[in-house]
Amino acid sequence: MLNKLTKTLCVATACAVAAMPVLAADGPLRGNLRVVIGSKSTGGDTYQNSSIVAEALAENIGINVKVDAVGASEAFKVLSRVSNGSVVMIFHDQSYLGWLYGVKGYDNIFEEYTVGPTVAINPGNAYAVPKSSPYQNIEDIIQAAGKGEKIRVAIQPGGVSEIGFSALKNAVKLRFPGAEENIVAVNTGGQSDKNQLLFDGQADVINASVQANEQYTRLPEDDQKAMRFVWLTARKETIEQANPEGMGETSREDLLEFVTPNASVTQDGTKDFTFDKEFFFLYNKDMDPAIVEQIDASLKEIFDAGAIQETQKNSFFIPNFMPSAEAQSYLMDKRDQYEVIIESIR
């Protein structure tokens, strides 16, 4: 009995040793890297995008990288606790928008953490109306609000889903001062809740996404579920980089109809508001700067090689690599612009 036991143990130990990662890396990153993300879903865009990047990093540096969907508040907590570089975070604009909107659990990421490189854009943030809606485009909506019609917009409060709504309200305020009260938020949860409010007639416009709602725009008008896009918040240049097939039956050309300047929502009276949901790294403030450099350098190699771009585009992400320093000033500027908008309609 004892003999058998020892044998089992030996075999087991051998397996364990074999399973240990090869410590071949020459940079400061070695062993197992944990990537926490600000989303709890393993089916969503943050997880998908992070997996693509994590896999590429693992291969390039020669370490194990594991993505954990722990959600925003837990991810920030772990990140501020672990400074040895064994944990990094990938998240998107929600990380500072949550703070701008005053959501509990969000800090000023530019002070509390180190902002790392950007890797991709999800260009799909959209606004949709029922196919039978009297509003043909976003301009109709702004005009209607200016004339005193109440427009109910279904959004998820406190972040990425609200920023387009805030911009719309701000645009109405700029063009028809006082009329911005007519743009009303219907606060709800995920995409299915937003769709449901539209089906129920409890919302006139919903925050939608190209990926999740494109098929709904192809339904016949008499279908209760049929929708129509009126606005994509992405920059024109962003959509222009997408594959020409676009998404489903909606080509890149079709999508360009819904972005600036064709769908114009003014930011300050002169230029149009745009919002691209960008994914980027976040690090602990006290993490070794050599790791920041190593990840920057490794990502540069990966993006120079060019294979990751194909993977990203096939999943309807727009490749968007910016090394840490560039990403920091870029995102800080982006944050400042949105702060003005949010403050002006408060």
């Binding site: 393993t42 089916g43 998908q48 990926q211 709904y216 579920k225």
Partner: peptide, 16 residues
């Protein structure tokens, strides 16, 4: 989670 599997394979889910 299954949604992720479809998107990865480039299959779009929806009413159609």
């Amino acid at each position: 989670v299954l949604i992720g599997a479809f998107t990865l394979q480039g299959i779009q889910l929806g009413p159609l």
